[in-house]
């Protein structure tokens, strides 16, 4: 009883700290826990703008990963964008971006690092249009381009810390896609967290974002080596989640909530809430500033949210350790890269 009250008190304190730390970014929260068995569908929020918005993204809009996270974020802002998805080919994406600009769309979200080169050509031709591009920590110095990027190492650290408590000496298998961008940040943060928690990671990059067969084979290799936990990123990770399910291994997700794939084996997912930075950007755009800076998703500003799976029975002390770590990361006391 005492412990429970202490916990409640701690939680209240914790929430207050968060609110204080979030300074100005409104109602952001850095953790949520789903109700087991609930529908994960994202509810549409109240519309924040009357400007027209278009989205160009490399993978499918419902990939339970990178692209879907952006669609969900726009939905939360009450925006129903026009969408061109599946444009792995940069030339196709460039054509779509230019097409939307010519159609007079006000805000064009180019959701792929690889579109940067095209954007540098297109954006100056349409100075009245605002381009939102990521993930990138640099807006290429173009006045009508906003850039966004996740500090994916932060949630990676938290995931790694929790994973270490489950895996212990058995270690954790990591299924990486290509050694670049937020995948590397996530995996490096995860490794630091795992090591801080007294475990270790085995990392294999498949060198493909989309090769499900390779991701599956990689996860199987990890499982055969006796790891106790799996994690991974990119849309090919669905193969690894299947292996986790088949071998009854806990799974940690990133980018989007992967509960849909793994039911009760996903322990936690670091979910990108692009809407936090998007809301800021849209506000600036409506104020007449069409670009000019890069914004990061962090635990602090609520752009990164640790979503715990209510179906997974996580030890409460582990969860509170994780929450403490989140507070430390926000406070800058834990360095995740």
């Amino acid at each position: 009883m005492k412990a429970k009250r202490m916990l409640k008190l701690f939680a209240v304190l914790f929430a207050m700290t968060l609110t204080a730390a979030a300074c100005g970014s409104g109602d952001s929260t850095s953790t949520t826990t789903s109700e087991c068995g609930s529908d994960l569908a994202v509810a549409a929020g109240e519309s924040v703008t009357d400007l027209s918005v278009a989205l160009v993204a490399p993978s499918a809009k419902d990939d339970v990963a990178f692209t879907q996270s952006m669609v969900d974020s726009l939905t939360r802002l009450g925006i129903e964008p026009q969408i061109t998805d599946g444009t792995f080919v940069v030339e196709e994406a460039a054509a779509a971006i230019r097409g939307y600009a010519e159609d007079g769309i006000d805000i064009i979200v180019a959701h792929g690092t690889q579109y940067g080169g095209s954007l540098a050509e297109i954006a100056p031709d349409f100075p009245e249009t605002s381009f939102i591009w990521g993930t990138s920590a640099d807006n290429q110095g173009i006045a009508n381009v906003f850039a966004y990027y996740p500090e994916a190492d932060q949630g990676g650290y938290v995931n790694g810390l929790i994973a270490a408590s489950i895996a212990g000496a058995d270690g954790i298998g990591v299924v990486g896609p290509v050694e670049a961008g937020d995948a590397v940040a996530y995996i490096e943060g995860f490794t630091l967290g795992a090591e801080a928690g007294g475990s270790s990671t085995s990392i294999v990059y498949t060198n493909s974002f989309s090769d499900v067969a390779l991701a599956t084979t990689t996860a199987e290799a990890h499982a055969a080596n006796g790891v106790a936990v799996l994690t991974g990123t990119s849309q090919s990770a669905v193969g690894a989640v299947n292996v986790a399910t088949a071998n009854d291994l806990p799974w940690f997700g990133t980018q989007s909530n992967t509960e849909a794939w793994s039911s009760d084996l996903t322990v936690a997912s670091q979910v990108y809430h692009w809407d936090v930075v998007l809301a800021d950007m849209i506000e600036k755009i409506e104020g007449g500033t069409l670009g000019g800076e890069a914004m990061a998703l962090t635990l602090e500003n609520g752009g990164l949210v640790m979503e715990f799976n209510g179906c997974y029975d996580l030890d409460s002390s582990v969860k509170s350790d994780a929450e403490a770590a989140i507070a430390d990361i926000i406070a800058g006391e834990i360095v995740t890269k």
Binding site: Y205, T206, N207, L214, A221
Partner: peptide, 23 residues
């Protein structure tokens, strides 16, 4: 060749730095 690359990388027999070449 593919299985060797994945398996051996997962056991650190192939070092992380060589993953591009191994791929």
């Amino acid at each position: 060749v593919t299985a060797t690359r994945i398996r051996w990388q997962s056991l650190d027999i192939i070092p992380q730095g060589a993953s591009d070449i191994a791929a």
